[in-house]
Design a protein around this nucleic acid. Structure first.
Lengths: 244, 244
DNA sequence: CAGTGGTCTAGACCACGCG
DNA sequence: GCGTGGTCTAGACCACTGT
């Protein structure tokens, strides 16, 4: 075995997949497991980090380590459609949105193709599933393109970007960039995930081809242990429908 | 600051972005840095892990820690096109392919929609850029769909899936699933990356709609500190071209 | 309060790269 | 062989959760 912690991770993984440890079960405390495997707590925590990244184990500070109930609950659907996130149908999802007016700076000026200092509206969206944070989205829209209807939408939001569906232009070009990175400290605390757990970061830029402007930039952060992104494309005869 | 290692990471990050540490520079040894910051080597290594995941620092076992020369050199282009990976134009990319005949098992049967035990051809592709591993791809094709022309392609491969371009059917449905996870130990060693560094894992399934079969499943692994995936979609008037 | 995980320390020992 | 990073130890102390 390449390392002690991978060996322990394999052993615990087997216990989970064979059903000796069932979904929802609490594992023995890290001190107990460390004693069982005769390793230091640091090494044992390394093993748990591996299983956490696989989505098999959920770590809850102060409570314990648990076998995750369902794997891969968050699915981001690519293609720039209004529906961003799908989740298990039997669970409630609610979202908080904080709206702020800011001015373009740093990477935002390049994404939105506006000069530095341009007025923007920022929507900070945090979605919850059963009281536990689920995903984080920061959506930026040039101020002159953010209609009052969106700002004052009275509907209780069902899904994050339902509110923004009206913004999507008739002829749009959507560019989504996906990468894996560690969360910034404040992202880790708002999503209540470990700072050692990678997140799936998606940057989505939507341009209206008719007016030749970027109408929205969305920075999405999904916990890497529970999320994946799906992109589906159909190719017509000898030519694609996705442009570069 | 949320933690000691993030504080140190911020400080080093500033030294890099302000130019006090230039691309290609070797950082002081971890022992020296730990002494400078008056922390243990474990904490200092935590700080370097943060910077490594951001793509700012490259760790080379036995040599040292270096400021990365160019950020985000690997770009996966979504949409199922033949060209999988783009890289800096001034660098040479070469690929090794190992072909094996195997039988469908486990997740492969579900991906390819074939019964367990079906004969498959596996292509294990490892791409290198200037002698350092770059990306890892495992491509599976039902044996009866793998033409001899592909198996015996005489061309020196320029890019991984140029060889497979001929396979792409006229009318294809491509489904790409992206997630962030830790590398398996053998993936970490072949890609020569840390086991603590998340990878971007892309599962691409290509189906030929005409014959209603899955013609290829590709499991791609890209190092998270250097790679991102880009998906571009254009929407026609009031309807999309990406299907679910 | 007691019990849990999260961060950190000050080392030891191993594996790799290079002269 | 020597210097480097990689893994691991056996603790200490802090932060969070529940009673």
């Amino acid at each position: 075995m390449p390392s002690r912690r991978h060996g322990i991770a394999s052993d615990l993984r087997d216990r989970i997949t064979t059903g000796h440890l069932k979904p929802g079960d609490r594992l023995p405390s890290e001190a107990q497991l460390a004693a069982q495997y005769k390793v230091s707590t640091a090494t044992l925590r390394g093993a748990l980090t591996v299983l956490q990244a696989e989505g098999l184990v959920e770590k809850l500070h102060g409570k314990g380590n648990f076998v995750r109930r369902s794997l891969r609950r968050i699915t981001y659907i690519g293609g720039g459609y209004a529906r961003d996130l799908h989740r298990a149908p039997d669970t409630a999802l609610h979202i908080t949105v904080r709206t702020t007016k800011i001015r373009a700076h740093g990477a935002l000026t390049a994404l939105l193709r506006v000069p530095a200092g341009s007025p923007l509206t920022e929507f900070l969206c945090l979605s919850y599933e059963a009281e536990s944070p689920h995903s984080l989205a920061r959506i930026y829209i040039p101020h002159d393109l953010a209609p009052a209807a969106v700002l004052n939408d009275p509907r209780p939001l069902e899904e994050a970007s339902a509110r923004f569906a009206a913004l999507h232009p008739a002829s749009a070009a959507v560019r989504e960039t996906v990468n894996a990175r560690l969360p910034r400290p404040e992202e880790a605390s708002t999503l209540r995930i470990s700072t050692a757990l990678a997140v799936l970061a998606i940057t989505r830029v939507t341009a209206d081809k008719a007016i030749g402007r970027v109408v929205e930039a969305a920075l999405l952060v999904l916990p890497g242990d529970r999320a994946h992104a799906v992109f589906t494309t159909t190719h017509a005869i000898n030519e694609g429908q996705t442009e570069r």
